Amino acid sequence: MRLDFIRSLYEERGPFASVYMPTNRITKAVAVMVGLRWRHISEGLAEAGAPDEVIARIGEFVGDPAPGRAVFCSSSGVIFSEPLAAGPEWDIARWSALPHVMPLLAQRGERVPYMQVVVDHLGADVIVLSGGERRELVVQAEDWPIHKPAQGGRSQPRYERDVEETWRRNAVATAEVIAKEAVQSEAELIVLGGDPKSRHMVLDRLGRDVAQRVVVAENGGRSPGEMPKSYLRKVDEALRSWLVQRQNELVDAYRNGPAVSGLHETARALRVSQVAKVLVAEGPSYEEMVWIGPEGPQFSPDREEMCAWGVADPINERADAALARAVATTDAELWFVPELDSPEGVGAILRF
């Protein structure tokens, strides 16, 4: 994933309060629990040295309708916050030189830009999901004639041709919208469901590049107001398959090189903007401490190395926090993979 969405965090000077907390008080019992956990979090921040005004600003999110929230705040105010899909199992509260973003990145995962498309002879329902935004479109070029009559007669062939021409025009319109939106959203996947004949007509009219991104959902028809459940199950399956394939491709690229292994070598490559993608094995807790400087890519497990790079007074900080900052500020990408043959479960695919 690209970390552009948190880059603003590193335009501020720390220290930062990083908090992961439950927020939704949907029942009286849950409200009591959320209040108790917030008190524990606020006391921990105070003991760590966070100013009262920082704690108060974070406290304003208690009662948020989301199940939980990640909040990053400095003395200048809340710099970034994001609702969590599920409340955190345990509270995280840090007052430190760098924001502690890795738990957010791990839960967020890779947000694949993709499209949901369900078609019939009338047109299509299209949903585009990209960059954290969702857009819904309805495609329909013509709505008559749409059904072939059962009775015969002299006009039967002409009427059937008119119906098929309506189908064709709607398929053309749908294919044009799919192609345009796929380019604009940089969609990696297009899950195409609906009427079988309409699917084939649309597929036949897509360019090769776009057609290669299509996954066909055999089940599901157009339903006013919502996508069919059978179709949405296929969407989830397609997204999981895409992610597994992408992770495998990245691990293969890491093995074949050019690449570096381990936290120390990855840090060195990041400092010279040599890294295209950082790979992090899922599961391990990166509580190892490293030394950081004031600039984004400045970190190393070796304090003397930081001093040699011109950092007069290196600061001790969590390795995962330093790694995330370096990735965000060097235009690299961060990917979580199930396993990685590397010391500390960290490695990097190099640009050169």
Rank of each mutant, 00 (worst) to 15 (best):
F5T: 04
V19D: 03
M21T: 14
V32E: 10
M33V: 12
V34K: 00
E43V: 09
A48H: 04
A56W: 07
I58Q: 04
G59E: 04
E60P: 04
A66H: 07
V71I: 15
V71D: 07
S74V: 07
S74F: 08
S76R: 15
I79T: 03
G87C: 10
P88D: 07
M102S: 11
Q107P: 00
V119L: 04
A124T: 05
A141C: 03
I146R: 09
P149T: 03
P149Y: 01
G152H: 09
R154T: 11
S155Y: 12
E160K: 12
R161I: 11
E165Q: 15
N170M: 07
A173T: 07
L192F: 03
L192A: 02
G193P: 06
D195E: 15
P196L: 09
R199Y: 06
M201N: 13
A211G: 06
A211L: 14
Q212Y: 11
N219I: 11
R233P: 09
A238Q: 08
W242E: 06
Q247Y: 01
D252H: 12
H264Q: 13
T266H: 05
R271W: 12
M289N: 12
E295W: 08
Q298R: 10
E305L: 06
I315S: 10
N316C: 12
T330W: 09
L334W: 09
P338T: 03
A348V: 09
